[in-house]
Design a protein around this nucleic acid. Structure first.
Lengths: 200, 200
DNA sequence: GTCTATATTACGATAGAC
DNA sequence: GTCTATCGTAATATAGAC
């Protein structure tokens, strides 16, 4: 059970509370009653800030998607060899995932019952395709093994990266940062590109 | 929308219909009304076979857990070097996941709102620890890279394997098998142990 | 084994006072 | 901006006929 937060709410601050509850109980498993208890205000007060449950979901997944697509616009994702750009994007995905953990978590759990959810799924697919294109180029340039299909490899790599939301929890309330952030990014990069086997 | 199935139901056959709907709409997003429509019988008829929604979930995740734990009892998972046993377990996990796709999918999406869900999460953790121990032994025997923490590596490898449920769909209704089954298992084994980088 | 009908509770959302 | 009270709907589950 998430506890209250006090002070007056804005759609933004309310969102951070709602997202936590969505993650704990699942979006469908969360009622407006749950949200009101967690926020410490009544149900009707929530409707003063947002039009309903779905708007909270839309705001959350939009934020995650904006951050992810932003990666592809960064300089290091646009210049250099495809393999270098791919490694940069993989590392940045891990960073964004950890920095925007609750929002990305919610994005990755969306199933498709409502219009907002279907829209989110479509944008996710678009992002996946952009990264798959990068991996395809890296394969064409000979920097990636040819015995695993590009589409399949992309899916598996995404699977590894995205699974971080299942267990990563940032450090306590000591301000910024978080212990394993760099460690996790390094581990993912090592496993994705070098695998488990001991370097020879 | 899943369609009906006809003929008289048993708890077992009803389960296969229910699990499909749970996967499409999410467990919390599925009502008894949804289930009755998909099964082609009334709500009350469902209660004749099972005590309620949660029993269907329990039966589904039990099946998945039994199959997964069964892997650890197989001979190849108990004899040989830790690295060999680990590779065998990884391959078998992929196979079980694809063979029992709907049940494992449901297991991996469980969140923890009900007693059944919390029980399933606990058993999953137990299985994870068993595999982590295998990886730890492989590291001790020097067959696995030492620059990524065992616990972290286990989580990431599980993430890659488990993510298969997000996209894998077996072949059409041409009886047994399914095209990519072997291909997927090979790809996972290659990426997990060798990584993306081109073999030198 | 399956149905229709219904009890009971919980849900999302609104009305209107302060 | 927040509240209490409440509307209409949809949820889980049961009763009892066939």
């Amino acid at each position: 059970m998430t506890t209250a937060k006090r002070d007056t709410y804005t759609p933004e601050t309310l969102l951070s509370v709602a997202v936590q509850v969505f993650i704990e109980r699942g979006y469908d498993g969360t009622s407006m009653e749950h949200l009101s208890k967690a926020a410490g205000i009544s149900k009707s007060s929530i409707y003063h800030h947002v039009t309903g449950k779905e708007e909270l979901l839309r705001r959350a997944v939009s934020r995650a998607l904006d951050e992810l697509f932003g990666i592809l616009d960064e300089e290091h994702a646009r210049v250099g060899s495809a393999a270098e750009r791919l490694e940069y994007v993989v590392r940045r995905m891990v960073e964004v995932l950890m920095a925007e953990l609750p929002y990305v978590t919610l994005l990755l759990r969306v199933r498709g019952n409502t219009g907002t959810e279907r829209w989110a799924l479509e944008r996710r697919r678009e992002f996946d395709h952009r990264v798959a294109a990068l991996l395809k180029d890296a394969a064409a340039e000979g920097d990636v093994r040819a015995d695993v299909e590009v589409r399949l490899a992309t899916r598996l790599v995404f699977g590894m990266i995205n699974s971080i939301v299942e267990w990563y929890r940032p450090d306590g309330p000591d301000g910024r940062g978080g212990t394993g952030e760099r460690e996790v990014a390094d581990a993912v990069a090592r496993l994705v590109f070098g695998g488990l086997r001991r370097a020879t």
